Simulated scan of single mutants.
Amino acid sequence: MAPDSKQTSPLYVPHFTPANYGSFFLAGQFPVPSSTLPEIITHGAMTPIDVVKTRIQIDPALARRLIVAKEGPSALLTGFGPTAVGYFVQGGGKFAGYEFWKKRFVSIAGDKDTAVKYRTAIYLGAASVGESILADILLTPLEATRIRMVSRHGYATGLVSGFTRLLREGGVRDLYAGFIPILFKQIPYAIGQFTVNELCHETAFRSMSKETRATLSPSANLSISLGSGVIAGFAAAILSQPADTLLSQINKGHGPSGTILYRLGVLAKQTGFRGLFVGLGPRMVMTAGLVSGQFLIYGAIKQAMGAPPGVEIHKESKKY
């Protein structure tokens, strides 16, 4: 080899079996009785906040006290069924998809130096593709059902009655009317969730030696994971808020007739920049809790199931 030839570090890419991906999917929230499932726990627990957020997006004059006064405390749990089931299944597809595409893109990079150099692009690509394939196809009709139940008092008594009513009255078209907005919402959400979480962990680990990192106490690891998850949750909420607002309006039936992109454009213009971020405060609180909780429980379930860790391509020096 010529003296000026570039030396590259060897690349180790673990081999994930179908069983491993099944573990990632299960840990990411597919309903099995043997595990504590982060999506149903975290999204279900945040239902009251989500009800207030959605109502405010649709009608800014509403507030939590007004909702309780008019409809009773149980109104704050409206949409729990589709929320839990929708994100239950969507979470499995999202986490397993991220693991799959991250590994795939690392393999395409070919060597460790290249993978580390382009790690942010790998995170962005894996989050985007992992979210858009399967996860959002499963989520969209359940999210449409949830928003109808939250925005129309007395629309349905639960998930099954709400889903069947929406299917009966609007057909598949109404069930998937929010698919494009969901992509606009969930892809930025996933980018914030996974990319920022990865970069936060990298920042924390780069501040310590390998020896220190190898001997971190459980409480120190928990603090890093929790802090990274909270920051990632804030980022996910901010990035996805405009599309979340438009999604609520689309499923409420607002806007002109026409293609989804045309309706989104008109609604965005009518709503205005400030209006697109109405309800961001409660949503940031909700999302910080969701994302941090998901990562903590996802890691715990993976460990309990004996699943391997994901591919790590964090930068360890100032070389890049």
Rank of each mutant, 00 (worst) to 15 (best):
A307E: 05
H314C: 13
P242A: 06
A177G: 00
F194R: 00
P309E: 09
Q90L: 10
I137V: 15
S317I: 11
L142Y: 05
I182F: 10
I49N: 02
A84R: 08
T287P: 00
K70D: 15
P73M: 13
V32D: 09
G130E: 12
S161I: 13
K269Y: 12
E169I: 06
A126D: 04
L264E: 07
L296P: 04
I260N: 02
T157E: 06
A268Q: 01
E198N: 08
F100P: 09
T271K: 12
G255C: 04
F179P: 00
L26T: 11
F30D: 08
S207T: 14
I56P: 00
A220W: 10
T17Q: 04
Q303E: 13
I137S: 14
I122P: 01
H153T: 15
V230R: 12
F16H: 00
D50H: 08
K318E: 06
L280R: 02
G275F: 12
S317W: 11
V291G: 06
A177Q: 03
A135C: 12
A45D: 01
P18H: 04
Y87S: 09
G28T: 05
P38L: 09
A236V: 07
S34N: 15
L183D: 08
Y155P: 08
G272L: 08
Y262I: 03
S219F: 08
R65F: 09
L62M: 15
K319T: 15
I231Y: 13
I191N: 04
A126G: 06
P188H: 02
I297F: 03
G253Q: 14
M286W: 05
S9L: 14
L199F: 07
P308K: 12
K315S: 12
G255H: 10
Y123W: 05
G79S: 14
K53N: 12
I187E: 02
S34H: 13
S240P: 13
T42W: 01
D111Q: 07
S219P: 05
K210P: 15
G81T: 01
L142M: 11
V285E: 09
R263V: 03
A19G: 10
L139A: 15
P308F: 09
A127N: 00
L226H: 08
P256I: 06
K6R: 11
R64L: 11
L239V: 01
L134F: 15
T164N: 04
K70V: 15
R168H: 13
E131H: 14
A288V: 15
P10V: 14
S5T: 07
M286G: 07
G44T: 00
A304G: 04
E316M: 14
R263M: 03
K315R: 13
S292V: 02
F25I: 02
D4N: 11
D59A: 08
K6Y: 10
S209T: 10
L183P: 11
G178Y: 04
S23A: 12
A61E: 07
K70Q: 15
T36V: 06
S209W: 11
P60Q: 07
L77F: 14
F25D: 01
M286N: 12
G28K: 08
F88E: 03
H201F: 09
Q303Y: 04
A109G: 00
Y176P: 03
T83P: 05
S5W: 09
L76I: 05
G79L: 14
L280G: 02
G289T: 06
I180G: 01
D113F: 03
T164C: 05
H43P: 01
I180Q: 03
N197W: 02
I56W: 01
